[in-house]
Design a protein around this nucleic acid. Sequence first.
DNA 1: ATACTGTCTAAGCAGTGCTTAGATTGCTTG
DNA 2: CAAGCAATCTAAGCACTGCTTAGACAGTAT
Lengths: 223, 223
Amino acid sequence: MSAQAAKKRTSTPTKPTVAKSTAPRTRSAPAYHHGDLPKTLKLAALEVLSGPEAHLLSFRDLARRLGVTTAAPYHHFKDRTTLLVALAIDGYKLLYDDFLQAAQESEQYADRIRSLTLAYLGFARRERGYYAAMFLPEVSAASSPELKSAANLSFDLIRDLIAEHRPDLTREQASERTVSIWSFLHGMIVLSAAGPLSRRLPRKEQDRFAVESIERWLGSDPA
Amino acid sequence: MSAQAAKKRTSTPTKPTVAKSTAPRTRSAPAYHHGDLPKTLKLAALEVLSGPEAHLLSFRDLARRLGVTTAAPYHHFKDRTTLLVALAIDGYKLLYDDFLQAAQESEQYADRIRSLTLAYLGFARRERGYYAAMFLPEVSAASSPELKSAANLSFDLIRDLIAEHRPDLTREQASERTVSIWSFLHGMIVLSAAGPLSRRLPRKEQDRFAVESIERWLGSDPA
DNA sequence: ATACTGTCTAAGCAGTGCTTAGATTGCTTG
DNA sequence: CAAGCAATCTAAGCACTGCTTAGACAGTAT
């Protein structure tokens, strides 16, 4: 079944170069045989990861639908997991960009938290491929330090925001609160997206609900 | 690597029949060649699922370490996913049992919520194999109706508890609150267990934190 | 032109999920 | 109690996967 589905997709050989894009300057850099295989591999992987067949993504299949041999990808990524980790790192960086932009949109603490919350939900829904990569079990198991530091960018941003607004908290307490917010949002995304519990609230409802929950939770805050 | 690790574990052939258990009435039912293959398969799968190598569980490997052919399991489970779904269903039922017991421990609403929260966290940590099965992507993708109804047992229990205590809420709102609590707890488990964000609070801290968060969130509750 | 590096191919290994055909076992029924 | 039956398992094999090795090429640099 999975194979059939994959084969089907492969049968459109007209779209191997997903993004030739932006007519690269002259040539030189990456334009050997294929034309930037690493990038197109990533894009193809993202496409699969954002679909419902994400959990059976195959390295060979990616190669096939790009029209190269199944061995070609290994010249750019040590193994399958390395590709996924790379995507996860990209994802965390993109999320951080969104966070930075969201944080700039306002100066009030509460508004910033709100913006960040919405930015997170927006990212998770818009960049489903990246988001999936970021929380893939094999990616977590790889425990790459680069991945960790990419993730920490966003984590620290939120923690520092909380810490700044609540100087009475210890660093550890601010971290706890950050974890809790992140857990809440992640759980919400995961459970509403799939699984036997998926009661999917409409998007706006979900937004409002998340914002209010976090607001309320951070608001009445004795210790 | 994965293969080596698996092989290693296989090298203890002394423990294939993990649980002959409870000396079943007379005989008849299941005791042919192996001695209840379905049950031992489940147990072996649970063992793998609760370990760190969970994400590369292999049907063949399970068969091997039970000393049967790789085709034998297919006489009891249609395919790999069916086994996992079965485990997930068992898991949801066990969770429900824990919930029932926890709910009986007290009569006050707040105490019950507290007990249920602790029961959930306790289950997730104690029955890691079941918990992993319950949230495996391929299990979700299977979207079995039995799985759904097993999951709904626990879901409804919480929703009804909330609805009973807050008759002013619509059924939909009570569901929302249930999803939010579940999301929060699930996210907490997932993120603290692995992944680049895993700042693992000590268990007691985590308990206290979860209880307080949920309490506070359900407590100050305008609409 | 020559050598070199980077990119890809061809072929193959070991592992996986799953299927088919047949052997073996234990229960059941004439 | 034998014969038949159904459940259980084995042996062999297909199509797929991740990954490795050896070598063919293309573009760059000397």
